[in-house]
Simulated scan of single mutants.
Amino acid sequence: MSAPTPDRRIAPSILIVDGDVITRHAIADYLRHCGYAVVEAASTDEAMKALPEPSLGIDVILCDVAAVGEQSAQELSSWVRANRPELEVRLASTVEAVADTAAELCESGPNLARPYEPQAVIDYVKQLRATRDRATAA
């Protein structure tokens, strides 16, 4: 798991949970190039180890629905919703029906299709930041 020191004032920090190392590295590199702090996890187990670490400053979790580990992606999402409700979870899948079911479980709205469209991830994070900025200003 790689963990840069994020500056949350600049951009949200994103935790990518994906067992496919090529996919995970590709989206992580793209996001870093766009100025985002990124933490990578190859499994839900690695993700669970990163979540309690406040210095990582994770704001958004992008998790493959098929991520491996002791917990499924849906269980990870449920745990986050119960224990870290300030975090946003976005699940991704190559199977639309699975992504839709996961969306209902994590209540995160529309989810992402794999292979990831990097701009879709960037658009989502920008939307999240704008929503949070409006909430803070109110």
Score class of each variant (00 low, 15 high):
M1I: 11
M1F: 09
S2L: 06
S2I: 03
A3K: 05
A3R: 13
T5E: 12
P6D: 05
D7I: 10
D7S: 14
I16T: 04
I16F: 03
I22S: 05
T23L: 02
T23M: 02
H25C: 00
A26P: 00
I27H: 00
A28E: 00
A28D: 00
D29P: 01
A37E: 05
V38E: 09
V39G: 09
E40Y: 00
E40C: 01
A41I: 08
A41H: 14
A42Y: 04
E46H: 03
M48N: 13
A50Y: 00
A50V: 03
L51S: 06
P52R: 09
S55H: 14
G57K: 13
I58D: 09
D59P: 04
I61L: 15
I61D: 10
I61C: 10
L62Y: 08
C63L: 01
V65N: 07
Q71F: 10
S72G: 12
A73T: 11
A73R: 09
E75Y: 13
E75L: 11
L76W: 10
S77T: 10
W79Q: 11
W79Y: 15
V80Q: 09
R81V: 11
R81L: 14
E86K: 14
V89S: 05
V89E: 01
A92R: 02
A92D: 02
S93P: 00
T94S: 09
T94G: 12
E96M: 09
E96Y: 06
V98M: 07
V98D: 04
D100S: 01
D100A: 04
L105Y: 08
L105F: 11
E107S: 15
N111L: 08
L112R: 04
R114Y: 06
R114L: 15
R114F: 07
Y116V: 07
E117T: 05
E117M: 02
E117Q: 10
P118I: 04
Q119K: 03
I122A: 06
D123N: 14
D123W: 03
Y124N: 10
Y124E: 04
V125Q: 07
K126M: 10
L128C: 06
L128E: 02
L128F: 13
R129T: 13
T131S: 12
R132G: 04
R134P: 02
R134G: 05
A135S: 12
T136C: 06
A137F: 13
A137M: 14
